[in-house]
Every structure is written in structure tokens, then in C-alpha cells.
Amino acid sequence: MNEAQFVRLRKPEWQRLEAFAARLDGQGERLTGKNLFDLISLYRRTAGDLARARTLKVRPDLVDYLNGLVGRVHFRLYTARAYPFRKFLDFYRAEFPRVVRRSAKPLAVTLLLLFVPAFGAYAAVKANPFLETAFAPPGYAEQAEEAFGDSFGEKERSGGTQALMHSFYIVNNIRVAILAFAAGIFLGLGTILIIMVNGMILGGAAALVEYHGVAGNFWSFVAPHGGIELGAIVIAGAAGLRIGLALLNPGPLTRRHALAAAAKEAGLLMGGVITLLALAAMIEAWISPSLLPGGIKLALGAFNLIALVAYLTLAGRGKEKSPGVSAGALR
């Protein structure tokens, strides 16, 4: 068969595949299940044509054309599972708690990395109050005294400047979480550093407010959102450690594949982290500064923390559904 015959014979199918490819790209009618078998057999035959075109040594631009067509369809055919809305709910119902439980060890390490420096800083500042500026920006003590002092609770603490302050805290917390994850690429060291530094800031602040006698108000303000926020940052740290661990100890996989696998897990973790931080932000904006009595806020904080832990440990315990048709299955 020469080139002219080859093209004349096969052109109609290529053009049909072109049309399918355009529909896959969202132009024209959507593809339905009925088209699927047609599409797959067209794709297979065209892939075969590509191999034949190379053997026949036909015009280079014809090979390029077939190469492009096969590539275009391949990418859409061998795709990861689609994420419809139900899948979205499944993520929160089961997938996120599961991936958190799969990360139990890095999670435990991150908790230690946060709380050991936190208690260290707390004890240090408690014993030597002059250290208070070591872990907090200068002027923070005065601010804290003013914010959580005697006037606390007398007026709705949602004045303009407060709102502004909260928005900065919220943005900063999310940035810390993103950084704790992303810095894992530095063999996990970046994550360790960021979590430890934030632990020290936390412990230092706890000692500081105690020293200035405003601890009660401080904790009643922090409690409602604090547990969820810290939980999210700890999970982000665990995601970063998984990245670092995949680099240091890829196990039976190549480093590249171990990293990609860890990134998938870390991406799932970060999806949950962002949701948790958004939730914490809403609580911080509307509940934490409200006029509710301190006791109720503390109770609410305890409840939130217990609910978070219960959710992460218990949700999605049922048997996992077998994964649907995915790229791996098709291979």
C-alpha cells in the first residue's frame, strides 16, 4: 500500500476521530456512552495507523498529524476518574479522614515538633519574663494587654480594626499551612523548621498573656477556632513530611515515582487542610470575637477539637469501595 492509498483509505476514520476529539474538548455535542466504544476502536485503529505510518515512512507531516491526533485522544481517554459532585462529598465523608489516618506517623511527629518547642518556649518565658520579646514581635505584649485586658467583653469585639487584624491572621495561617507543606521539598527540613518556629511562637504567646494577666480572655478568644486551626496546620506539616520522606526514603519505588505518589496523598491532605482553615476562619470572624461568655467559648472550643479528632479517627471506617475504572486499571 502506498501513501496515497493509505491516506484515501483511512482518512474518513481520522476525520471522525478528529470530530470526537473536538467533542471531548467540549466543542459541540457531549459524548455519550454509546459513542464510547466507537471512540475507543477509532482511537486504537488510528494508533495502529501511526505505527504503520512510521513503518511506511510516509510524509513527515502526516506522521506529525497522526501523532498529534493520537496524543490528543490519549490524554482524554486515559484520564483519572472524573470528580463529580458525589465524589466531592465522598472526599469529606471518607477519603480525607482515611488519608489522614494513613499519615498517622508523620502526624504524630508533627505534633511533637509543634508541642515540644511550644512547651519549651512556654517554660522559658514563664521562668524568665524578659524573654517575652524573643518569641513575639515587640509591642505585642501591650497589644495583648489592650486587646484582652479589662475592657474585653464589654463591647462587641468586632470593630473595624479587629476585623482587619483577623483577616491578616487568617491569611497568615493559610500561608503558614501552605509553606509547611511546600517546604517539605527541602528533604522535610523546611517543614520541621516552620512547625517548630510556630510552636515556639504559640508557647511564647501563652506565657506572655499569662504574665500580663489576660490569659483567661485570651484563651476564651482563641479556643473556638484554635483547635481546628492548629489541627489543620499539623496536617499540613504531615503532608510536608510525607514529601520529604518520599525524597529521603523512596522505598521500592524510584524517587520520581515515590514523590508523585506522596504528592497525591499530600494533595488530598492539603485539600482537607484548606477546608479546615476556611472553617476556622469563619469561626474566628464571627464566633471568637462575639459577646458570648468565656465559659461557653471555651466549651465550644473543646467541642470543636473533640469533633475534629472524632471525625478524623472515625469517619470513613467502613469498607472501601473498589476503585472504578482508572488509568491504572486500563493499563
Binding site: 486515559y78 521539598i185 497525591k264
Partner: peptide
């Protein structure tokens, strides 16, 4: 491998 992106992969590559 020539596959389309999945959500966790998109999150990971963009947060980095």
C-alpha cells in the same frame, strides 16, 4: 504518563 490531572495533583503542584 500522558494522563489528565487529578485534583490532589493540581493542589500539590500549585501550592508548591
Amino acid at each position: 504518563g500522558g494522563y489528565a490531572l487529578s485534583p490532589p495533583v493540581v493542589i500539590a503542584r500549585n501550592l508548591l
